[in-house]
Amino acid sequence: MPEAQLQNIFLTLADVDQEQMNIYHQLSSFSGTVKEELVPDLSLADLRAKRQSNSQLLHVAKDELNVLRSTLSIPYFIIIADQDGDAIEMLCSSGMLHFLQGKGIMPGLSFSMAKKGINAISLSIELEKPTVVRGKEHHIQLLREWNCVCVPIVLNNKNRAYIKLAFNLKYDIDFAVSVMMQVKKNIERELLSNCPSKMKEITYLCFNKYGLSMREKEAAYGWFLNHSTLRIAGDMGITEGSVRNIIKKVYTKTQVNDKGQFIWKFNSLVSHK
């Protein structure tokens, strides 16, 4: 997806009107407050319980984020928060853990608007969209040296979790916008794929909007799962040439030009069902 489109997907404080900003300030106990050290909002028991109830999400998210981490060469930290905005896991670059723990940035913190004021997670909760919060826009003093990008993890049309990538102000924000959108898509798709029957049902509903026949849906679903023409042909009991012809018709009906566009389009539609 082009950078301009990605930037339009992510909302910032510039997208919030003054009336709503006043509400955020009223909600926040951090408004106008400077603190050098944070303390956990959750007890260890509550943190363990939240981790347990989100165990599958954590497993999938950490696997995907570890792929991202292998490509990052800058100092960073990543917060995985549940649907309430409570941090249930933290990942960071080498050498950052001791610094972050010393400042109180760790699992157990609540990043809700009421608890921590304006930050990328709280803004994403309020706007129900991916968000960017830069440096001094944060209410929390400790975050004012960081740019933060947050994406909601959406399943069955509900925000189930939030993932925030934080990095130093001196680094360009465009790269984070792009990679975090991909992280979001990959996690949502993997979570949905853990329930194959549900995923197929939802995907077929999305195909209905484009008038696909049952035969076209069957081939398109295999294509959506990134199967080869050989595998789809075997599953359907037809030739590879027939599969290619069906896929061409599917492209025309769904208004895409290649496999990448097709998967991207329906990954987005399926994850928001």
Rank of each mutant, 00 (worst) to 15 (best):
S110H: 07
N208T: 14
E201P: 01
N156T: 01
T203E: 09
I125R: 11
S124E: 11
K184Y: 05
I163E: 04
I140D: 12
L142R: 11
D174Y: 07
K185A: 06
E128L: 02
P196R: 03
I121H: 14
L97G: 04
L143G: 08
L127Q: 11
L155V: 04
R134W: 07
I140A: 15
G135N: 14
I163D: 00
L127I: 11
L97E: 15
K198L: 02
C206P: 05
F175C: 00
R189K: 06
L109A: 13
L165M: 14
V151F: 04
C148Y: 12
K217D: 04
E201S: 00
H138V: 09
C148T: 13
F224S: 04
L155N: 00
H98L: 04
V149I: 15
F111G: 10
D172S: 08
V151E: 05
S122Q: 09
M180I: 06
K103Q: 15
G135Q: 14
M113S: 04
S122Y: 08
S197I: 03
L142W: 09
K158M: 01
A87M: 11
N157G: 03
E128Q: 10
N208Q: 15
C150N: 14
I153V: 15
L169Y: 08
C195M: 12
V149P: 04
E201K: 01
C92L: 06
L169V: 15
M113W: 06
T131N: 09
E218S: 09
L142F: 12
D172T: 10
V151R: 10
N147E: 10
G104E: 13
T203A: 12
I105M: 10
L225Q: 05
N156A: 02
K115E: 15
S122N: 14
K200W: 01
D172H: 15
I88T: 03
A114D: 02
I163R: 07
I105W: 14
E128C: 06
P196H: 00
H139V: 06
R215F: 01
M199R: 00
L225K: 01
S110A: 05
D86A: 15
K200M: 04
V154F: 01
Y171V: 00
L191T: 02
I125G: 05
G222V: 07
S93N: 03
L212N: 01
P130N: 11
G211L: 03
G85T: 12
E201T: 00
A114F: 07
D172L: 11
K185G: 02
W146I: 09
L100M: 12
K170V: 07
R134Q: 13
N194L: 15
A87S: 15
K103T: 13
